[in-house]
């Protein structure tokens, strides 16, 4: 089993490299001369050329790519920000915790709201609450998070003064962003939990359990939910990507000091090294999260667990 886990982690490496390569290539397309951008418009042509030689900016594409990766991995050197003239690494890592906190809290919110409500909805199909939940979850999937964020801000922050509109210092700063980011996913999880549960309760083994005289509560929990949860976990895993993306926009709306707002700022100011490093990092974190959830899934599903216990 450990071997399997190890193998999966090792497999992350080529993926990480692939991600880095893709982003690096995309950034290649940015117009402008990095040397010129760093040294400023007043520097002489010779100085610029000299800088280019020193930093290896005239080297072929793959050489530069490998140097980048090498520096990043060994020295955590992701280059120098055009904006601050300081190493990119510093700012990124100082901002990372905020983004991670936001993502985690929002995902937890979505899961804790979506899944139980989805189960209820399925078990009480066609009830009044079920109809409402279906409509509400459908609605939230279509709502643009940033709009919903502004409405929430309007009501809770600006009018009621219960919560702050910006910043990331206190925990209360995370409430509105969490609702903003979490609700659409809560809706999504509700729908998928509901539909998998509905499928599962039609299965023969549920009827068998009923015929055995097992109480309904236990059937819902042990027989239905346990089986329904598996596809739901997959959906949760794949939602991490969208969640991270949504976090970027949410951070902008709420003026939070996270990686997402850094990316947006850097793009506006054409600070390519920061953008590249931040995007690559987020993408790798995403892959890591997916892997973890995948492994959790493998642990839970006895069919898969048995398969890999032997490897």
């Amino acid at each position: 089993m450990l071997k399997y886990v190890g193998k999966r982690f090792l497999a992350l490496i080529p993926i990480a490299l692939g991600i880095a390569l893709i982003i690096f290539s995309i950034m290649e397309l940015t117009p402008g001369d990095p040397a010129r951008l760093i040294l400023g418009p007043d520097a002489t042509a010779e100085a610029v050329e000299q800088y280019r030689e020193e930093k290896g900016l005239n080297d072929p594409f793959f050489t530069r790519f490998f140097n980048y990766v090498y520096n990043a991995v060994t020295k955590l050197d992701f280059g120098v920000s055009y904006r601050t003239q300081k190493p990119v690494y510093n700012e990124i890592f100082s901002r990372l915790p905020t983004s991670l906190k936001l993502a985690m809290v929002s995902m937890a919110f979505a899961v804790l709201i979506g899944i139980p409500l989805g189960v209820y909805s399925a078990m009480h199909q066609y009830s009044f609450l079920d109809q409402i939940l279906r409509v509400v979850s459908m609605f939230f999937i279509a709502v643009p998070p940033f709009w919903y964020a502004m409405i929430l801000m309007l009501i809770f922050a600006l009018n009621l003064h219960w919560l702050p509109t910006s910043g990331s210092s206190k925990w209360s700063c995370f409430v509105l962003p969490m609702l903003t980011l979490g609700m659409p996913y809560g809706g999504k999880f509700l729908r998928i939990t509901r539909s998998t549960m509905l499928e599962v309760i039609r299965q023969d083994y549920i009827t068998t359990a009923k015929a055995k005289g097992v109480p309904q509560r236990v059937i819902t929990r042990k027989h239905a939910l346990k089986n329904a949860l598996l596809p739901v976990i997959t959906t949760v895993a794949t939602s991490f990507g969208g969640l991270l993306g949504g976090a970027i926009i949410t951070e902008s709306v709420f003026n939070m000091n996270g990686l997402g707002s850094l990316i947006v700022l850097s793009i506006k100011l054409k600070d390519t090294p920061t953008v590249m490093a931040a995007v690559i990092l987020l993408a790798i974190i995403f892959s890591l999260l997916m892997l973890i959830v995948d492994l959790v899934y493998a642990f839970i599903d006895p069919r898969i667990k048995a398969k890999y216990a032997k490897t």
């Binding site: 023969d204 068998t208 097992v214 109480p215 006895p302």
Partner: peptide, 27 residues
């Protein structure tokens, strides 16, 4: 009473397809 006394205790039922009659996630 159906649940406690009858089902699985005084009257049991088995179904056609063994592949789907058992919960895959329980031993």
């Amino acid at each position: 009473e159906m649940r406690e006394d009858i089902r699985g205790k005084r009257i049991s039922m088995i179904f056609q397809d063994p592949m789907t009659s058992l919960n895959p996630t329980m031993t």
